[in-house]
Computed example of a mutant assay.
Amino acid sequence: MYVGVPKEIKNHEYRVGLIPAAVRELTVAGHQVFVENDAGAAIGYSNEDYEAVGATIVQQASDVFERAEMIVKVKEPQAEERALLRPHHVLFTYLHLAPDAPQLKGLMDSGATCIAYETVTDVHGRLPLLAPMSEVAGRMAVQAGAHCLEKSMGGSGMLLGGVPGVAPAKVTIVGGGVVGQNALAIAVGMGAQVTVLDRSMDVLRRLDQVYSNRITTLFSTREALESSVVHSDLVIGAVLIPGAAAPKLITREMIKTMAAGSVVVDVAIDQGGCMETSKPTTHSEPTYVVDGVVHYCVANMPGGVARTATQALNNATLPFVLQLANKGAQQALLDNTHLRNGLNVYRGEVTYAEVAEARGMPFREALDALQKG
């Protein structure tokens, strides 16, 4: 198969779809890989590194799309990239379509086969291609939140872990999944006073067993959420409904109750955000203030640690990339139900129920679409 790796063009996005080690696996298996000029240069992967493992360097994105059958990316295709997609293309990347009507329309109009990393599953019902970036984002959320608490960033001027004789900051983490667990590990490690809310008692029990009396666990009711938010110096939104728009659990009224200089970090912003006051920001302009509260809502947080994030992502995606290349997308999707769960758009139709529901569009089962396609 001809596999293409374009350079990411989203604001301050330095990750790359395939690193040289992954390209080597493809070329050894007999596939041809086209990599856009300097696609990985920003994180230390030169054109020469790619050529050494058998890739062909092309000068611009249009060359990648023209030559490749499968496009492997990191972030959702931007408007100019969507214009290059054709019906014969297989797109494999993060899509986050539920809150993004223009992207969904563009992908449907292209006729391409569009597989989203974030909805591919495993035998345990987990999301193996979302997990590594959730791990990174969860850890970064505390790091970013701590920085935003600094006075020069508009925060209250509080050190997250405090010092002897001075109380630490109060941190609330909404959601005990992969993002929440990784945020929790860093927040506890930095010495913060942490409360975690979730609606799964199994999740809360596991966290309590690990951290014991070092954290507070609460079943997430509206009352518990309101009480926690109002007393927090830092709130981290770590809510996920796979493939669907994030629920707006933290209301504008809750934000108003927080002290001036408090900080919120909405890690769910890729799925529309879990706070009513959230809107996507970039690494260039990461924050804004609503009712005196600093909001950090960067939509590609892991891009800030692009080398680590790229390596972690490739570890997870490579087995699926090889399946798609070795078998062809049609057969690979038919053979592997977990990969098939990643199929969001196929030949102009929406094939992921939560995306269709979020956008109020017709839905077709992925298996049905593939068998009749």
Rank of each mutant, 00 (worst) to 15 (best):
G4Q: 03
G4A: 01
P6Y: 02
N11H: 13
H12A: 15
R15K: 11
L18V: 05
I19N: 08
A22M: 06
A22W: 03
R24K: 15
E25W: 06
T27S: 13
A29H: 09
F34C: 04
V35W: 02
I43P: 03
V53I: 07
V58I: 11
F65L: 07
E66R: 13
A68S: 12
E69H: 12
V72C: 05
K73S: 09
K75P: 04
E76H: 01
P77V: 02
A79K: 14
R82W: 10
L84Q: 11
R86W: 08
P87K: 05
V90D: 03
L91D: 06
L95G: 02
L97C: 08
A98S: 12
A101T: 14
Q103M: 14
G111W: 02
G111S: 07
T113A: 06
C114S: 09
D122E: 05
D122N: 15
L127Y: 13
L129K: 02
P132W: 00
H147Q: 12
S152K: 11
M153R: 13
G155Q: 07
G165M: 10
V166L: 15
K170V: 11
V171D: 02
V171N: 04
V174T: 03
V174M: 07
N182T: 00
A183N: 03
A187L: 10
V188Y: 12
Q193S: 13
R199N: 14
Q209Y: 11
R214P: 09
R214K: 15
I215N: 02
T216I: 11
S220T: 12
T221V: 07
R222V: 14
E226I: 09
S228I: 11
S228L: 10
V229A: 05
S232H: 05
D233R: 04
I236Y: 08
V239I: 15
L249Y: 14
K256S: 12
T257A: 14
A259F: 00
V263P: 13
D270Y: 02
D270S: 03
G272S: 02
T282D: 02
T282L: 00
H283S: 04
T287K: 02
D291K: 06
V293Q: 05
H295S: 02
V298P: 05
A299Q: 05
P302N: 08
P302W: 15
G304S: 12
R307C: 05
T308A: 12
A309I: 09
Q311G: 08
N314V: 09
N314D: 13
L322K: 15
L322Q: 15
A325T: 04
N326W: 01
K327P: 00
G328Y: 00
A332R: 09
D335Q: 07
D335C: 06
N336F: 08
G342T: 05
L343R: 04
G348N: 01
V350N: 01
Y352N: 13
E354M: 14
E354H: 14
A356P: 06
P362M: 03
E365C: 10
E365F: 00
L367M: 12
G373I: 13
